[in-house]
């Protein structure tokens, strides 16, 4: 159970914030041929089966690799073989070598997005979490204090989880594409702009 909790926390902290990027890369690469949601869920399944995550120095890269391996397997099962394994190299080249600083920045931007979402969680949802996790109340006590049924409390929590996951993964899809220039490269400009 401890191991599960440790891995789940690791996924929450190190993996979820990168899902949006992994998704958009899968879409860009295999959008037409692959069910992206299936691939993502399968990738989480594989991550959850890890015995330990201590050896993973670069979680974002690991997630990208796992998702890619899933995609390759899915395509392979359908008989699209060589094409996929070759592109693996391309994938690894691109992702694994991206500077850590970039990945951290990416993750931090995701955190910022989630932080902005806090206000959109229902009050019931927030209070329920505080009562259970901070004050240590039981499910029944929490529901009584909030004046609703236990299942209503759970519904609020379910909606909350969905909002969080949605914010991390799907919202703002257009922006993630817009961040890239036509070469697929993020470019920063420094120095004084010349106005023409």
């Amino acid at each position: 159970m401890d191991r599960d909790r440790q891995i789940l926390s690791w996924i929450a902290r190190e993996i979820l914030p990168h899902e949006r990027r992994v998704r958009s890369r899968l879409v860009r690469k295999w959008g037409d041929t692959l069910d992206i949601d299936d691939a993502i869920q399968e990738a989480y399944y594989r991550l959850a089966r890890l015995e330990t995550v201590d050896h993973i120095e670069n979680p974002a890269g690991y997630f990208h690799r796992t998702a890619h391996a899933v995609a390759v397997d899915m395509l392979r099962r359908r008989g699209v073989i060589n094409f996929a394994s070759m592109n693996e190299n391309e994938w690894l080249n691109v992702r694994d070598e991206e500077p850590l600083a970039d990945q951290l920045l990416e993750a931090k931007q995701e955190f910022a997005r989630v932080n902005g979402l806090l206000g959109r969680l229902s009050d019931t949802c927030r209070r329920a979490i505080e009562m259970r996790r901070v004050e240590g109340l039981s499910q029944r006590e929490t529901a009584e204090r909030l004046g609703v049924s236990e299942s209503v409390v759970r519904n609020h929590l379910v909606r909350g989880v969905q909002k969080i996951l949605h914010a991390l993964t799907e919202a703002d899809e257009a922006k993630s594409v817009g961040e890239q220039d036509h070469l697929g490269t993020k470019v920063e400009y420094f120095g004084k702009r010349r106005s023409h």
Partner: peptide, 21 residues
């Protein structure tokens, strides 16, 4: 996929708790 989705949801729940707390 159910297992993957379950893990993802559990992680999402942890993330939400951390955002709130």
């Amino acid at each position: 996929r159910h297992q993957g989705a379950y893990v993802r949801a559990q992680a999402g729940l942890i993330a939400m708790e951390q955002v709130v707390i």
